[in-house]
């Protein structure tokens, strides 16, 4: 099986920060896998995902995404960027634009710069956008302005935009932390299901152990910028999860035991 993400001895500190955001992180994700990054806020999940998306520079170590090494000092060439799709915690949609326009924005990196600037999507682009909308169950919202939508609908638009990009790797940063539990399950099922049917790799972060267990084949636990564990979902035990949330203590209702 080929490798989608390969991270070796990666360290990174934000400018002006005392502590590193990522410290000696190493892991590997095989193509087609669905992996969750689990950990409390501040564990470095967002930083790691943004870095894999090519939006952070100035790190050390070796990182390879979809077979191509990332340059620690400059963003990846724009031709490679559409291959990695990103779903943002805060949706990152253009609120005043229509749903279809937002989904077509995912196609911009696949168009020639001139066509993108002129705003004339081809039939093919439109077809892909419409398919993405239908797959996300929001075909009927295409002409609506995003600022008239609910949170769950917005995240569906964001996922449709990501799918329109035709990514081979989908990175999702806390994609459901702004949603209620019922919508959170629906959205994660949609996201991981769409990745599976398209043969894409999915790497999503979450601070909720139950969601990570339900939708990932493998779980990487992070805390204070380090990887604490990296196990298949079936092998994840409560002690390991509890260790991630040591200061938080036992969380009632999600099957965690306190550790001394």
């Amino acid at each position: 099986m080929s490798t989608a993400v390969e991270v070796d001895d990666l360290s990174f500190a934000h400018t002006g920060a005392d502590l590193p955001a990522l410290e000696r992180v190493s892991f590997r994700v095989s193509a087609g896998e669905s992996v969750a990054l689990l950990g409390p806020s501040g564990a470095g999940k967002t930083t790691l995902l943004a870095l894999l998306d090519g939006r952070l520079q100035g790190w050390s170590g070796r990182v390879s995404v979809l077979g191509a090494p990332l340059d620690p000092d400059r963003p990846p060439p724009s031709a490679r960027r559409p291959d990695t799709g990103f779903v943002f915690q805060e949706f990152a949609l253009v609120e005043r634009s229509s749903v279809l326009r937002n989904v077509l924005n995912g196609r911009l990196g696949r168009m020639s710069p001139l066509r993108a600037l002129l705003g004339s999507p081809t039939k093919h682009d439109l077809e892909i956008a419409r398919t993405a909308l239908a797959d996300c169950g929001i075909a009927d919202l295409a002409e609506r302005r995003v600022d008239s939508l609910s949170g769950g609908q917005r995240q569906r638009v964001a996922i449709a935009r990501c799918l329109a990009q035709e990514p081979r790797l989908i990175l999702a940063d806390e994609p459901v932390s702004n949603l209620d539990p019922a919508h959170a399950c629906e959205i994660l099922a949609l996201l991981t299901g769409a990745a599976r049917t398209r043969g894409a790799t999915a790497l999503f972060s979450s601070h909720q152990p139950d969601l990570a267990r339900r939708f990932a084949q493998r779980i990487i636990g992070m805390r204070d910028g380090r990887i604490v564990f990296d196990v298949p979902t079936s092998e994840l035990n409560d002690d390991a999860t509890a260790e991630l949330y040591r200061e938080v203590g036992p969380i009632p209702g999600i099957g965690l035991r306190a550790v001394s």
Partner: peptide
């Protein structure tokens, strides 16, 4: 955030201005 999203999708600076910045600043 939408600017970062378009950057992530591979859109150049002028395309980002057109589709992420302009719709927000037009009014």
């Amino acid at each position: 955030a939408p600017i970062a999203a378009l950057e992530s999708a591979g859109a150049g600076p002028l395309v980002r201005l057109r589709y992420a910045i302009w719709p927000q600043m037009a009014p």
